[in-house]
Every structure is written in structure tokens, then in C-alpha cells.
Design a binder for these strands. Sequence first.
DNA 1: GTCAATATTTTGATAAATCAAAATCAGGGA
DNA 2: TCCCTGATTTTGATTTATCAAAATATTGAC
Lengths: 219, 219
Amino acid sequence: MPTATVENYLKAIHQLAGDGERPVAIGKVASELEVTPGTATTMMKHLGGRGLVDYVPRRGVRLTAAGDEAALRVLRRHRLVELFLVEVLGLDWGDVHAEAEVLEHVISDKLLARIDEMLGHPTADPHGAPIPDAQGRMPEHAGASLADAGPGRYQLLQVSEDDGSLLAWLSDHGLRPGTRFDLLDHDRPAGILRLRIDGADGVTSLGTSAAGHLLVQAI
Amino acid sequence: MPTATVENYLKAIHQLAGDGERPVAIGKVASELEVTPGTATTMMKHLGGRGLVDYVPRRGVRLTAAGDEAALRVLRRHRLVELFLVEVLGLDWGDVHAEAEVLEHVISDKLLARIDEMLGHPTADPHGAPIPDAQGRMPEHAGASLADAGPGRYQLLQVSEDDGSLLAWLSDHGLRPGTRFDLLDHDRPAGILRLRIDGADGVTSLGTSAAGHLLVQAI
DNA sequence: GTCAATATTTTGATAAATCAAAATCAGGGA
DNA sequence: TCCCTGATTTTGATTTATCAAAATATTGAC
Ligand SMILES: [Mn+2]
Ligand SMILES: [Mn+2]
Ligand SMILES: [Mn+2]
Ligand SMILES: [Mn+2]
């Protein structure tokens, strides 16, 4: 059984791997987890020894099948817990990530199963991120970044930003996964988008930096 | 912030202290937490340095005011979590202790407050043990051991046994906190009690060892 | 192709928890 | 009072996770 620390490393590598093309640089892992590079290097050797990653010094790491499975298991727990905290306990959207970051490592399989059942085997967390199923299969859900979108009508699929003020701002402006809106215009040089959000009045402006965290689907 | 380990030591000392008359022997702490005596000794020095216990070598330890407050805080969390798991998630009576043993250290104050609210500020956990309030005040609830009781009518107040088969056995026989029953007779030499439990049919027999874990109130 | 900037690894320490086994103490019985 | 026994403390290690700073490798710029 991996420790909480090991699970966090695996999850971080999984996130950073993206499509899995190239190995993940050790420095990325280190900064993602806010540890020094030396600490990450040490851990990579551990994970390599445990068969959870393929680690090539100075090239990077990539998850093995076992490591990927473990990462998806933690991701599933994280996202189910987040949704549970929002849906059942009514916690704030922006608060649940920190809570889930620790609960994901400690709840029993039995408790997780009850949560999953109580939520009706959901496929997306409160941020719209897909929840891997019990077998570790990730539901496909294709969204494009709002930062790359041109004028048109869209639905917000996912906010890929786990903590902080962006979530609160989105709530305040009526933007949450599932919300529909019109992208009125996208001033690329200025880096500003103007939206008319269903259910909100007036026009909302936001910058590319924020839009980069929003995954949308044209409708 | 104390670590989970420190919190467990404080909670153990609190439990073992009873009325608080005499200091708790280090060996008791060690066996309660299933660590070697040397480990407990080391920790007592630690806790002493942090101002959480008064530790007199070879005499024992006793919680300071700060240590007692911390212990009650953890106890509150433990019991609220147990009740939550039973009431809201429908987990098994016998499963919740192990789960709470770890959750008690990691849930945020915010989450705990929501749980408390959702349960309606309860004063007893699923085993009937009193839940300290947010200020650390322990609700008084006077029960006597069934092992010392004579024939008569009683109500079960509390089962002071956190894990294992006794809980399952009690459930199976319709005995839970709040249940009423008649103690038909108590054969002290043989160590056997015979009860007629409200809502169950026939007569149930149990031994003094089990009865010793049941706190009852004459009604 | 050389070399300096950047990324990574190594080295030497530290903190928290723990154990095994040796040393020590304290109290009760002779 | 003396000593034995059981409880406790000490000592010396180990594991996991971390950092700071020195050493080293890679690579893109020239
Ligand atoms: Mn999250
Ligand atoms: Mn985590
Ligand atoms: Mn319990
Ligand atoms: Mn605990």
C-alpha cells in the first residue's frame, strides 16, 4: 500500500504527463508538489524501485501501468470526495479541493463505495473533471480551451483549476460546469473575451488567463 | 498543530486517566497504542516539552489543561464522524470506529461544523458515548455497568467497546443505545445474565464479560 | 565546437516515529 | 534490610520524507 506521499507523487506525474508522449521532467514534479528538486529526484528513485515509474536520470519519469493504475485510483477518490462534499454536505466549491487532497488517501474502500453509490455513480466532479470508474477507465469528454475559441454559443464543460479565487469569481458570475453562454467577441491582442451568460444579466468580460482554465464545447 | 500521532497519544491518555486521580502509567499508554514502552517514554518527553502533559519519570503522565483540551477536541471529532458515518452514509456500526480513527485527524473545522450541523448538534455517538461540545464540555450521562446490576427494568445507554464482534452480536439481538429490556436474573457465580429485550423475542443470555461493556440506567 | 546557463543529481543533515535490547529503578516479599 | 522482579528508561538503529548547498550533466547560443 503506497503512502499518501507516494500517491501524491503519482497523481502529480499523471497530471503532468498529459498525452503521455514525452517523459515528465523532474523539475515539473518538484514544483507541482512544492518540494526541492533533490527531494523529487530521491522520490523518483524510490518509485522506480517500487515499479511505479520508469525513471531515466536526467530525462524524466513516466508512469508504469501499475503507477498509472494507482494514480487513477487516487484521482477517482479525489473527485468523488469533492463531489460528495459539495452535493451532500453543501461545502463551498472552492473549499473542497484542499479537503479532498487529504481525504483521498485515508477513506476506506467501503466508505468510497458508499459515497459513489449515494451520488449515483457520477462521471464528473464539481469542476466538471471526469471521474475514472472503479476499473480505472476515464470517461472521455472532449472540450476545447475557451482561450482558443471564436465567437459563438458554448457550454462550459470543465474548470481546470483546483483552488483559489477563480472558482469564487465564476460562481459569482453564474459560470459553472453545464452553464451555456454566447461568446460575443474575443479580442486576441488585448487578451479579453466578452460573454453573455445564460441566467446572468449584462455582459461579462474575462481575460485569456482565466479563459485558459475553462474547457468548453460549441453547441 | 499536533500531528495525528500526538493526538492519538493525548486521546489514549485521556481515556486511561478515568477520574484523573492518579497519573497514567507509561506501560498502559504503550499497550493502548500498541507501541513498545520505550516508544511511549520518548513520546511522553515530547509531550511534556510541548506542555501537553505533566510527565514524572517512573510515576506516569497526566494531561495538562492544554492537553486535555486537545484530547477532547479529538474525541469530539471522532464521535461526530462515527455518528455521521452511521446516520448519513449508513455504514455499519462496527466499521465506523476504524474509519473515524483516521478521519478525526484530517477533516477541517469547516467540514466538522457542517457534519455537526447536519446531525443537529448531537450529544451521543452511535455507541452512546457522549460527544463533547465545541467548547470541550462533556455532557454528563450517568450509567452503571450492567455487570453490577440486579433484576429490574433498564435502558441501554452506552456500549463502551469500540470494535469487533460484540457490536455485531448486540445488533443481531436488538440491543443498541436506547433499547429497553428486563434483566430477569443475574447468576453471579456462573457469570450469566438473562434478559428479555423489548422488540426481540425470547430470552437472551450473555456473560459478565460482555455485560461489563454495557452501561445501563434503571427505568 | 565551446561554454555558460539551466536542470538535475549528490551529499550531508534533520525531524518524526518507531523498534530491539541493554541498563536501571522501585517496591514487595523474605 | 536486601534482593528480585516487573516496569520503565536508555541507547543505538531504522524508515520515510524533507532541505540546503555543492557537484555534475545537458543543451542551446554563439
Ligand atoms: Mn481537486
Ligand atoms: Mn493528496
Ligand atoms: Mn470509536
Ligand atoms: Mn486516531
